[in-house]
Nucleic acid binder design. Sequence first.
DNA 1: TGCGGATCCCTTTTT
DNA 2: GGGATCCGCA
Length: 665
Amino acid sequence: MPQRPVLPCSDDGSATAADHPGPCIDYHSELNSAQLAAVTHGDGPLLVIAGAGSGKTRTLTYRVARLVEDGTPPETILLLSFTRKASHEMLRRAAGLLDHRCHRVSGGTFHSFANSVLRRHAGAIGFSEGFSIIDRADAEDLIGLIRKEFGTRAESKKLPRKSTLANIFSRSINKELSIEDIIYDDYAHFEHQLGIIETISKIYQQRKREHFFCDYDDLLVYLHQLLSENDAVRQSLSSFYRHILVDEYQDTNLIQAEIIALLAGEHRNVMVVGDDSQSIYAFRGANFKNIISFPERFPGTRVIKLEENYRSLQPILDLTNSVIEEASEKYSKKLFTRRGGGLLPKLVASMGENAQSRYVVEEINRLLKQGVPLDDIAVLFRASFHSFDLELELTRNAIPFVKFGGFRFAESAHVKDILAHLKVLCTPKDRISWYRILLLISKIGPKTAKAIFESIMTQGRGAIGIIDAGPKGKSNLELLRFKNLIDDLVNSSSPLKEKGERILEYYLPILKERYDDHPKRLRDLQQLVTIMERYDRPDTFLADMALEPPNASINGQLATDRENAGKLVLSTVHSAKGLEWHSVFVIWALDGRFPSHHAMDKPEALEEERRLMYVATTRAQENLTITYPTQVYDRITQTVLYNPSRFLERLAYDMVDKDYYNPHG
DNA sequence: TGCGGATCCCTTTTT
DNA sequence: GGGATCCGCA
């Protein structure tokens, strides 16, 4: 990437930038007045309401560059954003503006920041710095084990499944409500089992502490606890991070807002950027009211609104403004653009799903002929499975694509199997991983696994204890092979990647035996080993796999950034957040799918669906095409769906081109 | 005690 | 279409 030479810049950047061409950034000509005000804001709390496409990232990037230019040591700037990718991109751009110092800015996601703080200070709240992070699937497995302990009695027969239990527990933490409240609000059909659900939750919390497991929520909870209970740690962090910048503030939950308040409580140098109209994570506890109440939390907050949209042509902006206009609660803002011209957005119905797919393929081919690059086109949808039919149609037409969202590489069974082998090396107490890998060995079921695990624990000398564990007398060749593996791994000092290869070599026969699609899965695992190359320590690798698992796939296989280039993008709306393309298709804009029928009877959920549609449609720069199939039978409601999304129904006639696609016509 | 087959359920978005 | 669960056999 380009790196400018470091030359002295004026300390007073307010109006002098233009006098100093060269490496000094000309803030005045590169930013509009609202952006400039945010970038050159001095100390104190700042709230930036940034409409879609209004240069939010640009503003944050320039702000970082500006702070560094003013002499703020980069590592004392804490930039919290939604994904590591987003923060890397921002720092990369800031470095392009200024110089490499910007790469030293601290940052990442809330969860990764919590992880790094707790690795140093968890002891201060009676936890261990050597904790391991468990992802959603691990958490569910642990809950499943506890759930089973209640399994023999008749009354527990119809306990919620483990994934539902995990949802309930997580909601309760992220919304700071009791389990009782969550059950009454969202799971009324489990009311009669409230007591037992609460008990399982307590045991779950207890087990996690015993094993030094941290689930996603714990990372935030423990960080919050650390900051509120330990003044020394809070003060040292707060005096180190003199400037705190938070991106996508509308998607923070209460705990996260409190963490920010604790960190910034003294110096109050906190800038949060967000758009309440783009809050789409309420389902995991995000509270868009955080952004509305920020000025109350930090009295004296300066509020700046970015309302000029640089992304979309006027007809697209008219449509998106109209989608969000009916939202019930929001900061009032009206986006405008100087980008006139362009075609009206299209709203196209089709008979059934496959016609929709064929229409999209036809249109993509038309755009390609017009010279639009394939990777500047995206197809967006509400839920991952909405693209299945289109994926087949694209393959038939030899259009390469990469899909973002929905795909859980790190949670597929075979990947988890390999990871579990590494986990028992790092954390021999990890019962779940032991069970997981022991049950892969034939003639070992739950009882034997339990006995082996207990023997390893009694021996207390780590994973190597496996050598002397297991059924005596009878020889189990597979178990022997496993013991050899652990022996090799424990005694090896080879790089992580070689350990991965050794595990894969051991696992290969198991893979072939268990999965009839093993060639495909093997390619996944080879990718996994390739990822290991970038790490020297297994624990950092495992933490990254849990905190920021890769989510891009090609034909259901993990895709690397390099492979993504030049391909059509398919993405869930959630994963498309913050991105933009020349031409955007929003498919399945069918009432009952988008909004999803799950949201139909809850006003606030419906509002979130509306914001989701807003996020989807605002991704488009020049072309926006919205499609929906008609005559779709919905098994759950037992009705036939045929209406376009209610968020589009009231669009004025001059706002959208309506069409019906008939492939045979 | 382990394992394979039959039958039931539900089917969103993600750190 | 995939998981959890149950049942019967080895």
